[in-house]
Simulated scan of single mutants.
Amino acid sequence: MTEQTRTGIEGLDSILGGGIVDNATVLISGNPGTGKSILGLQYIYNGATEFDEKGIYLSFEENAEDIAQAAESIGFEDWRELVDDDQILIYDKQELLRHNDFNATLDRLLAAFEETEYERLVLDSLTMFELFFENEQEKRTYLLKFSDILKANGLTSLLIAEQAAVFPEQDIGLENFLTDGNIYLIQTPTESGVNRYIWVAKMRKQDIETDIFPMDIDEGGITVHERAAGFSMMGGQSDSFPGE
């Protein structure tokens, strides 16, 4: 039986058939504001508080204080305590961008991976990570290398990526083909705000629900509702689209 890492996010583990396959690398994509970073924070926090699994949070965009404030703003009030107790290891932009050289950064991360026992990792964001590389060939080489390193060190990882297009099939990048799974976060405007959705498009070695499901972001993070939305990535919204 394939071992899985539970996200602890209500509704999502059910869609995934229990969780994410251990040591998999999963791409989390969406437009700005869709909840990608919240999903990453929640995955790391739930690991430490619910499953006794330590997590590493890499951020090329925020400093450690910003990350802590974001976590506390969604109800993870003991985030700083978990960091102080080494249940969560933070590498923020000041650490990761110190040398402006990927090889130096990778060497430092390798040392951390090998010297500590962590099970989960979030990279926020892959978009900034890719700025290290000058061309597609170099990017592909290092993405494969980095993914292999994560797997070799027993890390089940989420790589967060900004998506320019509203709909996923319009913005498929190289990273989609180099990861074990793809999860898209989608939001559509309504008269009263936005509707939010999650789509698990691909998971290798797993039987998954490939419908699009509504989700909410509230105190405690993301909740996924296990009733498929009347929504098609190819055709836009249907007559049964929620919020109509």
Results as ranks from 00 to 15, higher is better:
S14T: 11
G17P: 14
N23K: 06
A24K: 07
S29G: 01
G30S: 12
G30D: 13
G33N: 07
G33P: 13
G35F: 03
I38M: 12
L41E: 01
T49K: 15
S59R: 03
E62T: 01
A64D: 11
A70C: 03
F76M: 13
D78F: 12
L82I: 02
L82C: 04
D86N: 09
I88H: 15
Y91L: 11
Y91I: 11
Y91C: 11
K93L: 14
Q94S: 14
Q94P: 11
L96Q: 11
N100T: 12
A104F: 08
L106M: 10
L106E: 06
D107P: 02
L109A: 06
A112P: 12
E114Q: 10
E115Q: 04
Y118S: 05
D124L: 00
D124R: 01
L126E: 04
M128K: 10
F129T: 10
L131N: 11
K139G: 01
K145C: 09
D148K: 08
I149Y: 12
L150K: 07
G154Q: 04
G154N: 10
T156R: 09
L158P: 01
L159C: 10
I160Y: 00
A164N: 13
V166C: 06
P168F: 00
Q170D: 07
I172Y: 04
G173R: 10
E175R: 00
N176D: 11
Q187K: 08
E191M: 00
K202D: 06
K205V: 10
I208L: 04
T210L: 13
I212E: 03
M215T: 00
E219M: 15
G220A: 06
I222G: 02
I222T: 02
E226A: 15
E226Q: 15
A228W: 09
G230M: 02
G230L: 00
F231T: 00
Q237G: 06
S238N: 08
